[in-house]
């Protein structure tokens, strides 16, 4: 149980933060960032056209690395006036990144919510089959799970365009325009992709519970299958399921990036993608923006789950 004490949680938070700092400044370790950015600025200002004479190798710049980590820490604590370089001009990071963050997180949380619902419905449907007949739905799930996310996103996008071409009916917006961002399809995709993954995890947990004795006992007492599924199995599977929740989260973040690129949404992940090469501190800042709220949520959920499962089948 000691993984859930306050000291342990604090250490966890601290170490993960350190690791984020270490990751975020890595470009300064491996490249001569300052020199390279200078060259890029010269190219943007058109004082340099010929780059053939320039040559550089991968380096290990520990001094620059530690210096940049120190600067990033200072930036994080002073906040506010951080700037990023893009095509010859410096712009302030902050109101912009914050708005994009809220937009993308709305997509993500709605997607996660509907995805969870979808996964639960699918799992219940599969569980209503008897064990013998579960092979076919499982094979379909395996197939869907194996397809890469960009394949599924592109297929959905192209099929919407195709129906538009055939019938002249644009069912949903599929790309960002001046009117705004598409809403329905991205949320649908962001719920579909993790739903397949969550469904797999839930199904594993459900089947594990199903073979336990108390379930057999409940059946023998004559409770209906729906009652047992909802009251007994679902409650006991939540713990196992939650242990995998972080990987679902990582999965969803990767999906979000691909979705924003394919649907041309100007979101949080695309901002990180576009600017963090030249400004590695954007990577660090955005990682913290994702890490802090979700770490809090995870910790709170973990504590409440542990309070409601005091018997401690928590060694999973």
């Amino acid at each position: 149980m000691d993984g859930f004490t306050k000291r342990e949680t604090f250490l966890h938070f601290l170490l993960t933060s350190i690791s984020i700092l270490l990751i975020g400044s890595l470009p300064y370790l491996l490249f001569n960032m300052k020199a390279q950015v200078e060259v890029l600025k010269m190219i943007h200002m058109k004082t340099l056209d010929n780059t053939l004479f320039l040559y550089d190798t991968i380096v290990f710049n520990f001094q620059e690395y530690t210096l940049h980590i120190y600067q990033t820490i200072k930036l994080l604590f002073t906040g506010g006036d951080a700037e990023y370089y893009y095509r010859g001009v410096y712009r302030p990071i902050f109101p912009e990144l914050w708005e994009l963050f809220l937009k993308s997180m709305t997509y993500m949380i709605l997607g996660l919510f509907f995805g969870l619902l979808l996964a639960l419905v699918m799992t219940f449907l599969v569980m209503y089959f008897s064990r013998k007949y579960r092979a076919l739905p499982k094979i379909i799930l395996f197939f869907l799970e194996s397809l890469p996310d960009i394949f599924i996103i592109l297929i959905i996008q192209i099929s919407i365009i195709w129906t538009y071409k055939k019938t002249g009916l644009l069912v949903f917006d599929i790309t960002s325009t001046a009117d705004g961002d598409p809403v329905v399809v991205p949320i649908f995709i962001l719920s579909l992709l993790p739903a397949i993954y969550m469904n797999k995890l839930l199904l594993l947990a459900f089947e594990e519970e199903e073979s336990r004795q108390y379930v057999e006992f409940a059946f023998s007492k004559g409770f209906s299958k729906s009652y047992i599924l909802i009251i007994h199995i679902l409650r006991n599977s939540i713990l196992t399921f939650f242990n995998h929740f972080r990987s679902i989260f990582t999965f969803l973040l990767a999906n979000l990036l691909m979705l924003e690129i394919i649907f041309n949404i100007n979101g949080f992940m695309t901002f990180v993608y576009k600017h963090s090469v030249l400004n590695p501190e954007i990577l660090t800042i955005s990682l913290f923006m994702v890490f802090i709220p979700f770490f809090l949520i995870f910790t709170i959920v973990q504590w409440t789950i542990h309070r409601s499962f005091p018997s401690g089948r928590s060694t999973l």
Partner: peptide, 8 residues
Amino acid sequence: NLSDAFHY
């Protein structure tokens, strides 16, 4: 704990 950063 350190490698937990990769989850984010």
